[in-house]
Design a protein around this nucleic acid. Structure first.
Lengths: 324, 324
DNA sequence: CTGAAAGCGCTTACAG
DNA sequence: CTGAAAGCGCTTACAG
């Protein structure tokens, strides 16, 4: 607003050419006479000069910004992921543009398309659906760099960085069994994400006699409550509930408590993700915590070209709280 | 990646000048021969042409994107606000860039500064501190359009759109009293936001004998739990707890329940904001819901210049749930 | 209605 | 080490 100073203004004020002023200010090239450099810096300071990012991006053919597309910003887990990505990105001097797929592959395809109207060099995407997100992601890859994060979709050939769900399930189950729990119910969902499918498969591979599953239509608090009601209808309760998502654990625990069940005395409850929700209730819930900063960092490295795109899985960490 | 088609490519393919191609594709000017227009459209389609947004922005001196800066994306209330703003903005064809102040006025000042390196025409900001955010916001206003949302800071002269906290407190208190509650404890925080100060003032203006206050160091779940412990130490409980934020209500209710207090039989609990957290616990919590889409809409109108910047306060709506 | 030309504000070979 | 010039890809007065 109101005549923002331009590079030419600075150059004129410092008595040099735009080339020289640019070399000093953009730091592209160190070969500038120190005396001139000082004059340019002084003029720039005096005029309150800031390089126009749009002009710079046009010339450099790169904005230095990246997008992140998540299934839903209402999901606290993705908020944490976005937060981690933003922190890592800002630390590396790159900006982040956020978008939300509304948990819908069609909206997702639309957002992917909209990113081309946006000012980003590439995109980190958490696919909404293993089966139905691949095509649109593949199309986006033809236009710019795309890395999948946390979940993958079939047909999208880009790099992937996520958590090792198999190792995660193993860690939680071992924790429950070592603390004496003998009958674990896995509370998960019949859902479209690769993460959900991997967790269920990992549990099944390790299930023993007495273990069982409750599969709900989706990952949500109300689904967790529904699972609690299913358990309460039975004669005996299992002594551990391994929930495949934090929201499930919170809903389950909250309803069990309201009906007089003691956690962890009667039943241990665990979550999966490591969101703030776990500390919202009393007792706080034991859960895996995903290494989100590391995940974000690797994804950004691939986006920046520092690391070749590939398949990366990082181990989650168990955080023991009062619910087990 | 890989030779994206340019306007010139389209023009050549259609056998027209760049001027004509631009007029057709950018929709700037309708005065184009229909025959030529058809050829341009066909060529554009065939080549998969998308206007380069950076070049367009440089020429137009406007990106069509706006930023939103919130105190913390970890706070579910701000997530809802950002979500509403994004939906409204996308509906109007404008993009949104998100940033986070980490609840710190210094970081906030830094982010405000960083937005100038970003690709936005203006900025919606939720100040972290009434007293300490004004200067940096005022500085940002000299460079681009800035509107304050949800909270205001002294010294920032921009427009403001938020909720009517006085009307909100009145609505909740009336609801509690009409449902027979006689001794209400206000659970709030000594904090720096204008919203917190307004809510407390509104409660004090309406308090009766028997009503009281618990003021905590900040708005958080653990503060809500601390409030519950303070109440539990007393001989008698008040029959209603009016919490000035959803997180306080969730923490309070959760700990009261764990200690055997019945909600709402023994005590009614209300929240303030309307986040998803309210439905996380059992019973779900009665609370005000802020008209976030309307707030976002008015803020965007001011940013776009459709509406002159001014002071706007909108009424929150009471959503009654099982906790009262 | 259409095209040649200017110009948005930068950066970067290219000469000197 | 420095500057004149080209050019990133668009849009838009300006002539015609």
């Amino acid at each position: 607003m109101g005549g923002r100073a331009t590079l030419l203004d600075v150059a004129v004020a410092a008595g040099v050419s735009r080339s020289t002023a640019s070399r000093v200010l953009a730091g592209t090239d160190r070969n500038v006479d120190p005396g001139l450099a000082k004059r340019v810096l002084a003029a720039s300071e005096r005029l309150g000069y800031r390089a126009n990012p749009v002009a710079r991006a046009l010339r450099r053919q790169s904005t230095g910004n990246f997008g992140i597309l998540v299934p839903s910003i209402r999901n606290p887990y993705f908020v944490h992921l976005v937060d981690a990505f933003t922190q890592v990105a800002n630390g590396a001097g790159v900006g982040v543009v956020l978008a939300d797929s509304a948990d819908d592959p069609d909206v997702e395809a639309q957002r992917l398309e909209a990113f081309h109207e946006s000012f980003v060099d590439g995109l980190a995407v958490v696919p909404t659906s293993t089966a139905r997100s691949g095509a649109a992601i593949h199309r986006a890859e033809e236009r710019s760099q795309v890395i999948q994060v946390d979940r993958w979709a079939t047909g999208a050939s880009s790099g992937f960085v996520g958590v090792d769900n198999d190792a995660g399930i193993d860690t939680v189950l071992t924790h429950l069994r070592e603390s004496g729990r003998e009958r674990t119910v896995y509370v998960g969902a019949e859902q479209e994400s690769s993460a959900g499918a991997e967790r269920l498969a990992a549990f099944r591979a390790r299930a023993r006699a007495g273990d069982e599953e409750i599969l709900l239509p989706h990952f949500s608090t109300s689904a967790g409550r529904e699972a609690a009601h299913q358990l309460l209808r039975r004669d005996t309760l299992p002594d551990a509930a391994l929930c495949a998502a934090d929201v499930l654990a919170v809903g389950l625990l909250s309803t069990l408590q309201k009906e007089g069940v003691k956690v962890p005395a009667d039943i241990a409850v665990t979550g999966f993700d490591g969101t703030d929700l776990l500390e919202l209730v009393d007792p706080p819930i034991t859960a895996l915590r995903h290494p989100l900063h590391a995940i974000a960092g690797r994804a950004l490295d691939m986006l920046l070209g520092t690391e070749p795109p590939g398949l990366v899985r990082l181990d989650p960490e168990l955080v023991v709280r009062a619910s087990t």
